[in-house]
């Protein structure tokens, strides 16, 4: 049970730690104070408990497909929030952040992290509360959580410093990681809609389980970072590619527009 608790905790908590590390690094670059982390953490945990209370009702709504609809819509919402964040951060990288942009970025980050904590936290709480009283499992569950927090924190710290190091060679490392992370959320969203028959399933394009097993440690990491799916369908692949292209297009357009505005301002100052 201990190993299972650690595995389940990693599955649900690692995405939270990863997105927090990426956003912390991105927002610090724009001189946004880190107190948003505490707000989003607290808000996310409160929402997790609220979702835990309502999850049974949600799950059995819409002909037992309520949970899929709820999670899929929120994952899609998270992707949209990432697009908003990236569009503002792209401008902030070129010219000084306006107060309005700073506020939007800050609130987008808070909402994004809080929603991810809520969705993943409620998942883990179902397990945690379901087995707490079973065979005095509370000690094992608590130990599992402590171990899981330790592993997740280590990975998040490593990621944070890795981004700092890689930034010298590839300036958009944080944005790229955030784009792939959000595309991964969209993949989860499509998986949920596929399993309730709301998206055409189609044939599986390939099975890469013989290269990287989806339920291996590397598979878990790849799923969190890139939305790795060993057996994707055509519609999933198209959505994944479209999500990535759309995000990079937004970064490119917003950066270019900020650059043009910046040059114009410089010329006006020079004149």
């Amino acid at each position: 049970m201990l190993i299972n608790t650690v595995i389940l905790f990693l599955r649900d908590a690692l995405p939270v730690f990863v997105v927090m590390a990426i956003l912390l690094s991105l927002l610090q670059q724009q001189s946004i104070k880190a107190n948003w982390v505490y707000i989003s953490g607290l808000l996310g945990m409160l929402l997790s408990f609220a979702l835990l209370m309502a999850t049974d009702v949600i799950a059995h709504a819409i002909d037992d497909t309520g949970r899929e609809w709820f999670y899929a819509s929120l994952y899609f919402g998270c992707y949209c929030l990432v697009l908003v964040l990236l569009s503002h951060l792209a401008v902030g990288n070129i010219i000084n952040f306006s107060a309005r942009s700073k506020t939007i970025t800050r609130y987008s980050a808070i909402t994004l992290v809080a929603v991810i904590i809520m969705l993943n936290g409620a998942n883990f709480l179902i397990y945690f509360t379901g087995f707490w009283h079973k065979n005095n499992a509370s000690n094992v569950l608590s130990t599992g959580v402590v171990l899981g927090v330790g592993i997740c924190t280590s990975i998040a710290i490593l990621l944070y410093f890795m981004m700092e190091a890689v930034q010298h060679y590839y300036r958009l490392i944080r944005e790229t990681l955030l784009v792939f992370f959000s595309a991964g959320l969209l993949m989860q969203s499509t998986n949920l809609l596929l399993q309730i028959d709301e998206l055409p399933i189609g044939n599986i394009l390939w099975d890469s389980n013989n290269i990287v097993l989806e339920n291996s440690e590397v598979g878990y990491l790849l799923t969190v970072f890139f939305g790795y799916d060993a057996t994707p369908t055509l519609i999933q692949l198209l959505l994944y590619a479209t999500a990535i292209v759309a995000a990079f297009t937004i970064i490119f357009i917003r950066s270019n527009s900020a650059l043009r505005n910046g040059n114009r301002t410089l010329k006006e100052v020079a004149l």
Partner: peptide, 16 residues
């Protein structure tokens, strides 16, 4: 590629 929580004494539906 399926994952679904089933609550105590309840049922769940998935398509495969």
């Amino acid at each position: 590629n399926r994952e679904k929580v089933i609550f105590p004494e309840k049922k769940s539906v998935i398509f495969i």
